[in-house]
Design a binder for these strands. Structure first.
Lengths: 206, 206
DNA sequence: TAATTAATTAAACAAACGTTTAATTTAAAC
DNA sequence: GTTTAAATTAAACGTTTGTTTAATTAATTA
């Protein structure tokens, strides 16, 4: 799907508002007003509020796998690769945190009018890449074989998101006052913590 | 606040529907219908939809700290205590997962009409208990001093919630077909994974 | 039993919701 | 320059939203 400037403009406002106030908590009139377009433009361009979200997903989730494979193809040690993967994943989900948040909320709903097929397919592909990497490390005796591989991703992403969802609590614990110091904290301290965690798990687990 | 049977009945239906369809995605008429009461009863008992959620929070979050302290007062080893704490935390948040989900979503909103003061206070008290325990272990040389203590809780809870929010994805990865095998998976495999992770982090981190 | 309070109801309230319509303006193609 | 298609608009559509009202029934107290 090709997107013109106006469509991207609408999507970015929608992403912001959905993340701030939820999908149901955001009205198409709010989006239209903040994006400075007429309400009817949303139906005109995307068909419906739900389909607009689906387009947003596709727009944000692109080319993750390629960049992941690029890291794994480097000639670096296993611990170095873990550090790189974790740093990359954290950077990506932090950048796209608003879209991820919307997905987390909407995807876990029972009654959904949103189609997550493409999103799930990408998620599965990404997992297979990680799985192959860990298994390779296990075969070479670098990683512990007692690790539950499918639960590595939830550990990385879950730690980030629980921090992010409770950022008002944790920023006060860490004395982070503004948005910039939060970004910095994520890319230094939080990233380091997750790197430590995953390396400890993969290397010493028993 | 004292709650009569009918109020609890309403709260439990509300919890279920809020978790399934979101706070904004659930109407008071839905709640009233499923709880088999008149719509007006919700305003009559709780004042508003928002205040009803606040009452639900207080109802669900009680006596966590006491049970945590009870575990820590036992004369067991540090690794054993970690296992117990993780198992307890996972059990609790899994039991109260619906309420936690609502909090995760509503708390991170910018525009909130819901008061989270009591919830935050309890969260802080719980954290202080964990913090004291880890620091004690560090002083006795059992735990690594390079661990970021405030990020331990996000690692535990985040792993659980990311698994739970994406359960449709992970249950298919693990071939979990029904709700019972999911419960069992949480209390065995997932709990074990998080125990492994936290022990590895606290013991071997560098 | 009578008086009082609590619980419950159906109906109505105004406001907001997502979407559609039909008319008009702008842009592109010929 | 005329025709055709795309973009944009204000207004209206029928629903649904959370809450309130006023009347009635049930339970409690005196």
């Amino acid at each position: 799907m090709e997107l013109n400037e106006k469509q991207i403009q609408i999507l970015e406002v929608a992403e912001k508002l959905f993340a701030e106030n939820g999908f149901d908590g955001t009205s198409v009139r709010q989006i239209a007003k903040e994006a400075d377009v007429n309400v009817a433009m949303i139906s005109y361009y995307f068909g419906s509020k739900e389909k607009m979200l689906e387009v947003l997903l596709g727009y944000r989730m692109a080319d993750f796998k390629i960049q992941l494979e690029s890291i794994l193809s480097k000639k670096t040690s296993y611990p170095e690769k873990i550090d790189e993967i974790v740093a990359f994943v954290v950077m990506r989900i932090h950048k796209n945190r608003r879209t991820h948040k919307i997905v987390n909320l909407e995807y876990s709903k029972d009654s959904r009018s949103i189609n997550f097929e493409k999103y799930l397919q990408q998620k599965d592909e990404n997992y297979r890449v990680i799985e192959a990497f860990v298994k390779q490390g296990q075969e070479e005796g670098v990683f512990s074989k007692k690790v539950n591989i499918p639960l590595i991703i939830p550990t990385i992403m879950g730690t980030y998101f629980h921090f992010y969802y409770n950022k008002r609590f944790y920023t006060s614990l860490h004395n982070l006052t503004d948005e910039i110091s939060l970004d910095e904290f994520v890319h230094t301290t939080l990233t380091k913590h997750i790197q430590q965690t995953i390396k400890a798990l993969l290397t010493y687990a028993n």
